[in-house]
């Protein structure tokens, strides 16, 4: 019996236009993991996440969600949530309605949905803006709403595609700390995509370094789960050490992506 949250074996993606998005990728995510995908632009990070969210179909390989297929995703214990690079809110709906959306789509009754939406908003510190509209919030607040919309379904796996890429350093660090709490204290399994090395070093229990052309996993790097991910850790030598080792791996991966490109040219 396979108890992994996610298991990908030899997953490939060739786009209809012939572009090789991903060459065979193997990846397992266990319960409680915080796995980060990092790599140069175009290495297939978003493609991989979309395959897992079933927004793309793979051209080859085998993929399992909680040991089963995608048809069972969404049932209790197998809920998946996705946070995009942009907050992707509905501009015509209040914050409460935006957060309630996944529950509304599941036809959860109104009173329960409202209660859970408020609880999710309070969890990200936005219990006071339920009746506001997205246009009235800052970028960081909108991103928090997007996270609340993901949390409201009580997901068993959270997929995040460069969620904080558009935010300033300060806001981003605060949100990273919140994400670390969600994963390491509340046990939320997360698959996270980022461009930012320090973010990967801060958050992950495992980092998958990817290379491009074709997209593939170049190396993986484990980080001690028991570290307390707080402001102190960010300033520690340990953090600096992890960042340096990741930087070397990433440098390697980018160089290899370049070589592949030259060979092709």
């Amino acid at each position: 019996m396979n108890t992994s949250v996610l298991s990908l074996a030899g997953i490939e993606k060739v786009f209809p236009n012939g572009v090789r998005g991903l060459s065979p990728v193997d990846l397992t995510v266990e319960k409680g993991d915080f796995v980060t995908l990092i790599g140069p632009s175009g290495c297939g990070k978003s493609t991989l996440l979309k395959l897992i969210a079933n927004l793309h179909t793979p051209s080859g390989g085998k993929m399992n969600w909680w040991g089963g297929n995608f048809g069972d995703v969404g049932r209790k214990g197998r809920r998946m949530a996705f946070v995009f690079q942009d907050a992707t809110l509905m501009p015509w709906a209040t914050i409460a309605k935006n957060v309630r959306l996944p529950l509304d789509l599941e036809k959860v009754d109104r009173a329960t949905a409202d209660k859970r939406a408020l609880a999710a908003l309070e969890r990200v510190g936005l219990g006071h803006v339920t009746e506001h509209y997205p246009a009235q919030l800052s970028g960081g607040m909108k991103m928090r709403v997007s996270i609340a919309r993901a949390l409201v379904t009580e997901p068993d796996l959270l997929l995040m595609d460069e969620p904080f890429g558009a935010l300033d350093e300060f806001t981003r660090n605060r949100l990273d700390e919140e994400m670390a709490r969600l994963c390491y204290e509340d046990g939320l399994t997360t698959l996270f995509v980022t461009h930012a090395l320090h973010e990967a070093a801060f958050l992950s229990s495992r980092v998958m370094v990817m290379a491009a052309r074709p997209g593939r996993i170049h190396a993986q790097y484990e980080i001690d789960r028991s570290i307390l991910r707080n402001e102190e850790f960010r300033l520690s030598d340990q953090f600096a050490g992890i960042s340096r080792e990741l930087a070397i791996l990433l440098e390697d991966a980018s160089r290899e992506s370049m070589i592949q490109q030259e060979v092709r040219a």
Binding site: F84, L101, L105
Partner: peptide, 10 residues
């Protein structure tokens, strides 16, 4: 992205 979100949530 919003369309993808709706699709993902079936």
């Amino acid at each position: 992205d919003l369309a993808a979100y709706f699709q993902m949530h079936k």
